[in-house]
């Protein structure tokens, strides 16, 4: 298996030859560009981060077969659909765009160089403006903080005493006031 991985490494000097590397007879050179899955010359070639060459349809099918355990078929390094690099040989532009075929081959990843003057205009450039929308619950918050609903009062008078009666009366009064206020808020 180790010699296979040696074979699969692409020599930079030869990488331009693309699809037409094999004549059938010329096995020695051709095997350098063989897909590690179908053992044929790689079509729509992609290379993994660990350096192993595959046809994109072959690798795609392998990744589909083991969705939970995606490893390189050669060296079992962890691989990922987004981390394979397509190989574009010279002359391959004449062919049909491989991405139009199914399954689509992942595109190459290239980052634009940073522009020289990076003045972004007060931070209001492409995504500098934010707007938020929300509904407050002001009156209810107001009530709970003013009338202490739901909280234990500091000095609850013992049952039966006149003070207890008074407190009961007061709490009922305030409750009714609150309800009236609510009703007024809703119907007014």
């Amino acid at each position: 298996m180790s010699e296979k991985s040696e074979n699969a490494k692409v020599h930079p000097s030869e990488s331009g030859s693309g699809s037409g590397a094999t004549d059938g007879e010329d096995k020695k050179d051709g095997s350098t560009f063989e897909c590690n899955i179908c053992l044929d010359t790689a079509r729509d070639a992609v290379v993994s981060m660990c350096g192993h060459l595959f046809c994109w349809p072959c690798l795609h099918q392998w990744l589909e077969t083991k969705p939970n355990n995606q490893v390189c078929p050669v060296c079992k390094a962890v691989i990922n659909k987004d981390k394979v690099v397509p190989l574009y040989g010279r002359g391959s532009t004449n062919q049909q765009d491989p991405r139009e075929k199914l399954p689509p081959r992942p595109s190459g990843q290239r980052t634009e160089p940073e522009p020289g003057s990076a003045f972004s205009g007060f931070g209001l450039g492409e995504n500098g403006f934010h707007m938020s929308f929300g509904i407050g619950v002001f009156p209810f918050g107001f009530f709970t903080s003013m009338f202490n609903f739901g909280e234990l009062r500091p000095s609850a008078a013992p049952r039966g005493t006149p003070q207890h009666m008074e407190e009961q009366f007061l709490s009922k009064l305030f409750l009714w006031l609150a309800l009236l206020f609510l009703a007024w808020l809703i119907f007014a």
């Binding site: 899955i37 192993h52 078929p73 050669v74």
Partner: peptide, 12 residues
């Protein structure tokens, strides 16, 4: 079984 990899062959 589960450790099969597509680059393995009859020889391996």
């Amino acid at each position: 079984k589960d450790q099969w990899a597509a680059a393995m062959t009859l020889r391996t």
